[in-house]
């Protein structure tokens, strides 16, 4: 899949949109308009954007609670994301899910899961469904480094190999599980080595800040799985610029480390690449940034002016109706 100029511009647009939507979300949170937790993806945009750009429509995507970015990549609009953050009826989960629980079956995006590691066995199950039904899709399961130390991880990953399921396991190693550095929580620092214990081929992408590298690595892994080789395990190194959640004092890392990483901002890297390779002009990219600014502003207005769910809908969806 060679990317045309318009495809590149679309990927750039998605990355900038994730950034702007989250920056606005952080402000709205400070204003007290967003409740609960808010885990920002800022800094990791190249990862989800690269992954989702490499999938075909039949490929399912499932992730953990740091899910706004992936949601946008998968096709959920900025309006639906922001409205959900504000708990509105027009939110993607109709105000029932909040920051950590966004999904869209229509877009083959399966959430948005807030119990660390718990979605891994579910991913194996979805892949079983596709294998059983003879579908071509691969289930792409994203999770953090912290999720690889919990039992769910091992049960889910083991099952995928036992049944040779079409799952692409992607560990987004942003180097901290909340405030605990990888080497303080995991028996091995290179997470992908854990796949060895399950006989699953694996590798690590050291530069997850470059969307093109992510995309190419993921495309390769998807081809491998689609050829009937069973699961594959990919670790992608990245870094979150913001705290674990809003209000995180970040005592576990020094300012210098954050500043150093910010020099490798994924949006900056992609911007330079597009201009240097003469794929797009600075004017093209300025235009996209301006359009994203407008789209984000409109999405905020949409979210703020949307109605709350009516109180008499409290019991809606507790049980699915019909068969």
């Amino acid at each position: 899949m060679t990317l045309k100029k318009k495809d590149h511009l679309e990927l750039y647009r998605q990355m900038v949109l994730i950034r702007r939507v989250e920056e606005r979300a952080a402000e709205l949170y400070q204003e007290g308009k967003i409740g609960g937790f808010l885990h920002l993806y800022i800094g990791q945009e190249a990862v989800s954007t690269g992954i989702v750009s490499a999938r075909i429509a039949e490929d399912r995507v499932i992730t953990a609670y740091r899910d706004h970015g992936v949601a946008i990549n998968c096709g959920i609009s900025a309006k639906q994301v922001l409205a959900e953050l504000l708990g509105k009826e027009t939110g993607i989960s109709k105000g029932r899910g909040g920051s950590m629980h966004m999904a869209s079956v229509e877009n083959n995006y399966w959430g948005g899961h807030a119990i660390v590691g718990a979605h891994l066995p579910i991913a194996s199950g979805m892949a079983l469904g596709d294998q059983y039904l003879g579908n071509q899709g691969v289930t792409i399961c994203m999770f953090g480094d912290g999720a690889t130390n919990i039992g769910f991880f091992h049960e889910g990953v083991n099952l995928s190999k036992v049944w040779n399921l079409p799952v692409l396991w992607i560990c987004e190693n942003n180097q901290y599980g909340m405030g605990t550095a990888v080497d303080r929580a995991s028996a091995v620092e290179e997470i992908h080595i854990k796949a060895e214990g399950y006989g699953i081929p694996h590798s690590r992408l050291d530069d997850g800040m470059d969307v093109m590298k992510v995309r190419s690595k993921v495309a390769e892994a998807l081809d491998f799985i689609r050829a009937g080789n069973g699961p594959y395990f990919l670790e992608i190194m990245t870094y979150r610029f913001e705290g674990h959640s809003m209000g995180d004092p970040q005592r576990y890392r020094d300012k210098e480390e954050v500043t150093q990483w910010e020099k490798t901002d994924p949006i900056g890297i992609y911007h330079r690449y597009l201009v240097d390779e003469k794929i797009a002009s600075k004017a093209d990219l300025d235009k996209i940034e301006a359009a994203v600014e407008t789209e984000t502003q409109e999405a905020v207005e949409f979210a703020e002016s949307s109605p709350d769910p009516a109180l008499d809908t409290l019991f809606d969806f507790v049980y699915a109706e019909g068969n």
């Binding site: 891994l120 991913a123 194996s124 199950g125 079983l128 039904l133 039992g151 769910f152 049960e155």
Partner: peptide, 23 residues
């Protein structure tokens, strides 16, 4: 009729995933 490992999270979690996938 699928024999599973002794791994209840994989059994029920896997069941949830398969149900989501249409089974």
């Amino acid at each position: 009729v699928r024999d599973t490992p002794i791994a209840e999270s994989a059994i029920v979690g896997g069941g949830i995933g398969a149900a989501l996938a249409g089974l």
